[in-house]
Design a protein around this nucleic acid. Sequence first.
RNA 1: GCCCCCAUCGUCUAGAGGCCUAGGAUGUCAGCCUUUCAAGCUGAAGACAGGGGUUCGAACCCCCUUGGGGGCACCA
Length: 506
Amino acid sequence: MISTPARVRFAPSPTGFFHIGGARTALFNWLYARHTGGQFILRIEDTDRKRFHPDALQDHLAGLRWLGLDWDEGPEVGGDYGPYFQSQRLSLYQEWADWLVEQGAAYRCYCTAAELSEMREQQRAGKQKVGYDRRCRWLSPAERAAREAEGRSWVIRLAVPLDGEVTFHDVIRGDITYANAELQDAVLLKSDGWPTYHLANVIDDHFMKITHIMRGDEWLSSVPLHWHLYRAFDWEPPVWAHLPVILNPSGKGKVSKRAIRTPSGATIPVFVHEYQQMGYLAEAVVNFLSGIGWALDGETEIYDRKTAIAAFDIHHIQASPAAFPAEKLEWMNGMYIRQMADEALLQALLPFLSQQLGIDAGTLAADKRLHLLIPAIRERMKTLKDAGPLIDFIWADDVPIPTATDLIPRKTTCEQTCVILQAIIERLQGLQEWDEAGIETALRALVAELGVKAGQLFNPIRVAVTGRRVTPPLFVTLAAVGRTPTIHRLQRALQVLGDCGEHADH
RNA sequence: GCCCCCAUCGUCUAGAGGCCUAGGAUGUCAGCCUUUCAAGCUGAAGACAGGGGUUCGAACCCCCUUGGGGGCACCA
């Protein structure tokens, strides 16, 4: 497919942390830029000084980098169309807002917050439509002069047409028509001289030569306003593509800014850095996110980003909202973990294990037991966080003393278990090499010699040595635990069983 | 309340009028494998919201209803 290089942007506002829904928007923009051989631009929309959060910018940059969504222009990399912080472009917005006023396409409004809220109050009381009544739009030059003389502050509002309608095109949804009468004379420049989103995004997209706007569907209703702005400036609007919102997994309501709620009542985090901290792989998250609102071919679920880039098509993005498929991410992350090479998995695991086990990462990296265990636990993990609880007993000074109930297999008596354990101890003590293969050979031979079922012999060992009923595969586990602790714990289990009279019925 | 958008298995999706007795995935359930738990393999149940049109023919086009979502700030 031949497409002209697109210039697209991701334009987060540093008022909060990088949200998983924002990551999907960023990803789609990035995929489209890479697909067309164009540019992915990162622009920081920091015009809300009240809600500014000092850590938000770094959180976004770190999150994008973690996901591997590299930007061609923006913070820390620069570019020919900067600055890429709106707070550094204020004079540009002011200049063009003034120009609009000169052209008669916008006007100064002197209403105070108190006046506006009183107006809304009255509208509600009178069951009228709530919205700015344009009282300042019709002010005479003398009235304006009077207000300015009073030293009243003002905002600049767009003078939208009072009748007629506007029809614009959205790639994903087709033509959409709004009646101008439904539109507000929106504020373009605030009284502090800072622009609102409406003004800033139109001006920046124009001067940054943005060709396609891909953003959340919550912006759809402000497009008519933007359309009028483009027309007032006599600028060509970019192509609009409004992405479907991501809903809660229940399908009820937009995913919140704080936590995702599952039908079972559990909550799932929403920030990109939380997914990283929870042990999700960036590649899995990217793969997963690409499948919300878009599909590679309708068949393939696991694919790398190169494949996604090659196939990404803006025209095949779904228009309907999608519930966040949380269980699918779990599965997919597990798939990615299973595909990792031992060494790569080990490296990915180190920070998590180090924290969970309280052991220095360097020490862990050099620990042969960990290397032994990696292949054994890989398919038991859904996230990188799952490894620790699976193997922590290896580094524990001691393990819980098992109960007789746990030690004695089904359809086996206490006496039989004791006999089996005794035989195991002797056999393991006499083992030449303490490694997985040697242990397995010896124990399987013992199963045959004693004429018992494999489980009758293996399960007591598992419980005795690890204190758990569920563990990684037995032989590699024993190899990792080591001979001395293994024998010791087996002997201790024998003591637990002690006088079998108490457990005779088992 | 007003405006706009949306509507395929529980969920993510394929489907651009005949390839559809609707495909894939996840989740669920069952069987196999098996030293536990997983993983893996096999199988099962599971959807075109409803009603009208248009057409020889509709999941796909139009209308209505219903349901869901989004927006109505000197926030983005």
